[in-house]
């Protein structure tokens, strides 16, 4: 069982289905109905048959009452200047911080629906540390996740941001600077804690 929590327009969902050879089950969510049409068209065009799509905000994924083996979080982000020349004039620090809060809420909800040894892939096309390294550092310290090493093109992520020292494992994330691609941030997180009745995470040793 795989969750694609912010699925539309569906490029990555189709790629997941291909990697799974159209078997198993993918649950794909998006909260913008208009974007779901694009997702549905993608699934039809590529003959995907293992996916169920819901019109649901990723922050409410636990409503489905399903536990997932893997979760893809290609979260909404601020993007970057490579794909948008007017990026700097369109966005303020408040926008970046608002997105970072939204991303943390999605991450926290995803952890609730993840099986005990499940994995999350977190990705953004933003180059802002608030949406990347700082969020992952927060997840490691608060959600019982650890950052796994990945074999991926890109540079080690930052472990010192704005004078703050982050968890050493954050360097396992990959920061892909614009050049060969438009710029990305990606990492794999593994659950290593269990949630108690009060919702608090206890780290497993």
């Amino acid at each position: 069982m795989v969750l694609d929590a912010c699925a539309a327009p569906g490029g990555k969902t189709v790629q997941l289905a291909d990697l799974m050879r159209n078997t198993g089950v993918i649950i794909a969510l998006d909260f913008k109905r208009r974007r779901l049409t694009a997702l549905a068209n993608h699934l039809e065009r590529c003959h995907v048959k293992n996916t169920i799509v819901y019109h649901l905000d990723a922050r409410h994924a636990s409503k489905l009452k399903v536990r997932f083996d893997r979760i893809l979080l290609d979260v909404p982000c601020s993007g970057n200047f490579v794909t948008d020349e007017e990026w700097f004039s369109k966005r303020t620090m408040n926008d970046v911080e608002r997105n970072a809060r939204l991303q943390r809420a999605i991450l926290a909800e995803a952890v609730k629906t993840l099986k005990e040894d499940g994995e999350i892939v977190y990705a953004t096309c933003s180059l802002e540390p608030e949406e990347d390294e700082l969020n992952i550092d927060w997840a490691v310290k608060n959600l019982g996740l650890r950052v796994e090493r990945i074999n991926c093109y890109g540079e080690k992520a930052l472990t010192e941001v704005f004078g703050r020292r982050l968890d050493d494992s954050v360097e396992n994330c990959r920061r892909i600077w614009p050049g060969r691609t438009q710029g990305f941030f990606v990492c794999k997180l593994k659950k290593c804690g269990v949630q108690d009745a009060s919702g608090k995470i206890r780290k497993q040793v």
Binding site: A40, L43, K49, I52, V53, Y54, H55, L64
Partner: peptide, 15 residues
């Protein structure tokens, strides 16, 4: 996963 399908899905399986 029939319980899941009866919920308000947008798209499921093969269209």
């Amino acid at each position: 996963l029939k319980g899941l399908i009866t919920k308000d899905f947008f798209y499921a399986g093969l269209y």
